[in-house]
């Protein structure tokens, strides 16, 4: 669906230094995948989306989208993808249905009325179809912009900050709709600041700041950055009980925190029973055991910290 190789975009500004917005991006997104593109403001996420939707051209490198090469078959790319831009950008004086009608014609949709009705109903805007978009709430505009992106039934969707600025209720509605699109098997490339959202919706995550820093599934990123940690809650703790645990193969670290043992290990499925047996034999009362799960926010912040340190170092 998407494949880029050394994709680079440098903005040149008169009387100022060049701005490298995207540097050497090599990435592939498979069909049916939901790919989350995370990064701070100004990281180059929107520039990447604009290049992949043939809105702007790369300075160097190549990108293929839906089998078409960016810069060579731009019309075909625009025809075959759907995009939700950072701002909904609707025509506020016009009604919701008129807005969609215009875009359905521009995308050469065969059954314009049918598609407009389908998506207005699907997103709960049918009853407001004749109202000017200027009277809509932010959430309704965002839903309408999503409908606009889907009118021509693209298999590949680019969503730039789909829940940005929405209240929790509207954000939840948009998220559940993205979930539906995912279930329909559409490929989604999603830029977001909402790490919780990315964690829930995305198959893979790319952490990006002008260049791709990390890319993997959320689970693998957790393992890669923090390893797997299990917390053993005990009634009371004796520091000597931790000693034999260090000797178990696959255990990397044992920390004592109040009446808890936090153990970093390779494979909890194998090691947990051994650790429990050892603790019980030592006389410990185990209250409960749970895996310490780092949020995507931890992963993101840790990655950004590491990157900043690398930049300072060298």
């Amino acid at each position: 669906m998407i494949g880029t190789k050394d994709l680079t975009k440098i903005f040149t500004i008169k009387k100022a230094a060049d701005i490298p917005a995207v540097v050497g991006l090599t990435l592939s997104v498979a069909e049916g995948e939901v790919f989350g593109f995370l990064g701070p403001n100004g990281a180059g996420k929107t520039t990447t989306v604009r290049m992949l939707t043939s809105l702007i051209g790369p300075t160097s490198g190549t990108a293929r989208v839906n089998g078409f090469t960016v810069g060579e078959a731009d019309q075909d790319i625009r025809r075959s993808v759907g995009i939700l831009t950072e701002s909904p950008g609707m025509y506020e004086r016009l009604s919701a249905s008129k807005n969609l009608d215009i875009y359905a014609h521009l995308y050469d949709v065969a059954d314009v009325d049918g598609q407009v009705e389908k998506y207005l109903r699907m997103l709960g805007l049918w009853s407001r179809r004749d109202d000017p978009v200027g009277s809509f709430s932010k959430g309704m505009r965002q839903k309408l912009a999503i409908a606009r992106a889907l009118l021509h039934e693209p298999q590949l969707l680019f969503l730039d900050e789909p829940t940005s600025g929405l209240d929790p209720e509207a954000a939840r509605l948009v998220r559940s709709f993205i979930q539906e699109l995912r279930d329909q098997g559409r490929t989604i490339f999603m830029c977001t600041h909402n790490l919780n959202e990315a964690d829930r919706l995305c198959d893979r995550i790319g952490i990006f700041k002008s260049r791709l820093i990390e890319v993997d599934t959320p689970e693998n990123l957790r393992k890669k950055l923090f390893g797997r940690k299990v917390v053993f809650h005990l009634r009371e703790i004796n520091p000597q009980w931790a000693q034999p645990l260090h000797e178990l193969e696959g255990v990397h670290e044992v920390q004592i925190m109040e009446n808890k043992l936090v153990i970093a290990m390779d494979n909890p499925d194998i090691l947990n029973p051994q650790i429990i047996r050892a603790l019980v034999q030592s006389g410990a009362d185990i209250l409960f055991v749970g895996e310490l799960r780092h949020s995507l926010e931890d992963i993101y912040l840790q990655t950004m910290r590491d990157t900043a340190e690398e930049e300072v170092a060298g």
Binding site: L55, Q75, R78, R79, E86, S87, G89, Y91, L106
Partner: peptide, 10 residues
């Protein structure tokens, strides 16, 4: 901000 979605069409 309606120019970007407009230019994103074919």
């Amino acid at each position: 901000h309606s120019l970007e979605p407009l230019l994103a069409t074919p």
